[in-house]
Simulated assay, not measured.
Amino acid sequence: MCSEFTVVTKIKPGHADALREDLATLASGSDDAEARAALRQISTLHDARHVIFDNGTRHLFASVFDGSWDTYIDDFGKTAIGGRFDKVFSHTEGVPRHHPIRR
């Protein structure tokens, strides 16, 4: 089963450029072995994208994944990607922080 997840948030005033920088760093990932390894561990993920729109005032995150919502979220929580998302979403309003899963 394939599912989609989309969230649209308001970017905090003055944070659009910092968000763009963090997204560029996240997208390049070439110098971050931990992030590359984490993405390989998230076997449920098909596609993910970030979009800044409305003149830098809103942010969209959309992804396509296999299986259940719980498995998808757990996969992110077990890896370094959860912390990367905290950094990205720290520039937006209304998104709860990531809490790493301890096993």
Rank of each mutant, 00 (worst) to 15 (best):
D22C: 05
D22T: 13
F5V: 03
S28R: 02
F5E: 09
L39Q: 06
R36D: 04
T6Q: 13
V7T: 13
A33N: 03
H15W: 06
S43V: 11
V7D: 10
L23P: 05
A38R: 07
L26T: 00
H15V: 01
R40H: 10
A16G: 04
T9V: 11
I11H: 06
V8Q: 12
F5R: 02
D31I: 05
G14S: 13
I11R: 00
V7P: 01
E34A: 14
A27K: 14
D22K: 13
E21M: 04
G29Q: 03
L23H: 09
R36P: 06
T25G: 02
L23D: 11
A27E: 15
T6S: 07
K10S: 00
L26Y: 09
E34H: 14
S43T: 15
A35M: 13
G29H: 04
T6I: 04
T25I: 08
T25H: 10
I42H: 09
G14N: 11
E21Q: 11
T44C: 13
R36F: 07
G29A: 08
F5N: 07
L45C: 08
V7R: 13
R40P: 02
L39N: 00
A16F: 10
V7S: 09
A24R: 15
V8C: 12
A37R: 12
L39D: 09
S28V: 00
E21C: 02
L26V: 02
P13K: 15
V7A: 08
K10P: 02
L26R: 07
A27L: 15
L26D: 08
L23W: 05
K10Q: 09
E21W: 03
S30N: 03
E34P: 13
A33T: 04
Q41Y: 12
A27H: 14
T6D: 00
F5S: 06
G14A: 07
V7G: 02
R20C: 06
P13D: 12
S30E: 06
R40Q: 10
D31S: 11
T44A: 12
Q41A: 14
T25F: 00
S30G: 03
A33S: 04
K10E: 11
T9C: 13
D31G: 08
S43W: 08
A18V: 14
D22F: 09
R36S: 09
D32A: 03
T25R: 04
T25Q: 02
Q41M: 14
A35Y: 11
T44N: 09
D32K: 04
A33Q: 09
A18P: 07
T9A: 02
L26S: 04
R36N: 10
P13H: 10
H15R: 15
A27I: 10
A24V: 10
A16I: 05
H15D: 06
V7I: 14
I42E: 15
A33M: 05
A38D: 14
A18W: 05
T44G: 01
I11A: 06
D17K: 09
S28C: 11
S28A: 06
K12W: 04
V8H: 11
R20V: 07
L19W: 12
F5T: 02
A27F: 12
K12C: 05
L26C: 05
G29M: 02
A18L: 14
L19S: 07
I11Q: 08
I42G: 02
V7W: 01
A37E: 13
